[in-house]
Amino acid sequence: MEADEYVTVAPHPALRRYVRRLQGYREFSATPLRRLQAPVGSCALILGFGGPLRLHGPAGPAAPRAFLAGMQTAAVHTEFRGHQHGVQVDLTPLGVFVLLGRPTAELTGAVPALDELDDPGLAALPDRLAAEPDWPARFAHVEAFLAGRLLADTARAPDPEVTWAWRALVRRAGLVGIAELAAETGWSRRHLLDRFRAQVGLAPKTAARVLRFERAAGLVVGGGPFGAPGPRHDLATVAVECGYADQAHLTREFRALAGVTPSAYRCAFVQAMPVADS
């Protein structure tokens, strides 16, 4: 039996405005392995060429092999038994907007299989990756595909104002007021809300909430984005640093967005977290 394998790489610099990371994975579990996937500020493109991955979330149960998860505001549980093998690409919501050339809001809360997206090139990508000999070749193939979509002269670019507002929210982990965003873009709050929601998938206030939660979750489990090592903080400190009114407010947000308390989230994360190479 081959050992589980996780290989994580940073995307090519030209792709980093739209791609957060790439990870190759190969794993096996003789018994059902279930993981909690809480909302984050990115969309997971799963290019699986192993067995199906069972999904349980607000969109209902599904068992795709390859799929694209839109922006989420509630937890999704994944479960598999047997072999899992593939590449995960974590895209910014604006990356999804450019990749598909249509409003990201259409995918909010959804996890469609790739063959449901009316995109033959994207749907064929998992099988093409399976034919590659190793991880470097697969990553190169994925990046070439993404560059052809995301960096093409014909790509549908997001509004510069939406791009600025999204980056401001990411940079400040959601701790920026919507009135400030609107003032900086020169748009009315209503116009910003409409354009932002269409291209990011969430309204600015909701996106700020998810980004604030993502930072808090990283501090609770003792790591940064995607499980990068870091110090674990006590819950009262997390609440203060992330702008929550108090620890009770933090706990309410964890229950609302992850479905569990911060302590339960920490336990679930530690038990399910793979060790990734870089």
Rank of each mutant, 00 (worst) to 15 (best):
T78D: 08
L68R: 11
R138N: 11
P58L: 15
Q84M: 12
A63D: 07
D119W: 08
R65F: 05
H249C: 07
G224S: 04
A14P: 13
L235Q: 04
R54C: 12
F226A: 00
P61F: 00
A140K: 10
W187C: 04
A165N: 06
A147G: 11
Q199D: 06
L219F: 02
A248R: 07
L45T: 10
Y25K: 06
Y6I: 15
R197L: 01
L100C: 03
A14Q: 07
T108F: 08
P32Q: 14
E116A: 13
V40Q: 02
P158K: 01
P93W: 10
A203W: 09
A173I: 05
S278R: 01
L193K: 06
E184T: 08
Y25N: 09
G51H: 12
L257K: 02
A198L: 13
F139H: 05
G227Q: 04
L219Y: 02
L202D: 09
T108P: 05
A179T: 11
L114S: 01
W164S: 12
I178S: 08
A124K: 00
A140V: 11
R35L: 14
L117P: 15
V7L: 14
L22E: 04
A74I: 03
A14T: 01
D119S: 12
L117K: 13
T92N: 07
Q271W: 13
A74G: 07
A168V: 00
A216K: 08
G222R: 09
R255Y: 15
A272I: 15
V142W: 12
A276K: 13
D246Q: 11
V89I: 02
F67M: 00
P262W: 05
W135E: 15
T73W: 02
S263N: 09
L150S: 00
G109D: 12
A124L: 02
F67C: 08
D134S: 06
T104F: 05
A10R: 04
A183M: 00
A165E: 03
P204S: 10
A182V: 04
A75I: 15
L250T: 11
G82D: 11
E180W: 01
D234S: 02
L250P: 08
M71E: 14
V176N: 04
L117C: 13
P58K: 09
E253H: 12
A62N: 08
A245H: 12
G224W: 00
L235N: 04
A165K: 09
L219M: 03
G223D: 01
V176E: 07
V220L: 08
M273I: 11
A131L: 10
D90C: 08
L68P: 01
V240G: 04
V220R: 03
R167F: 15
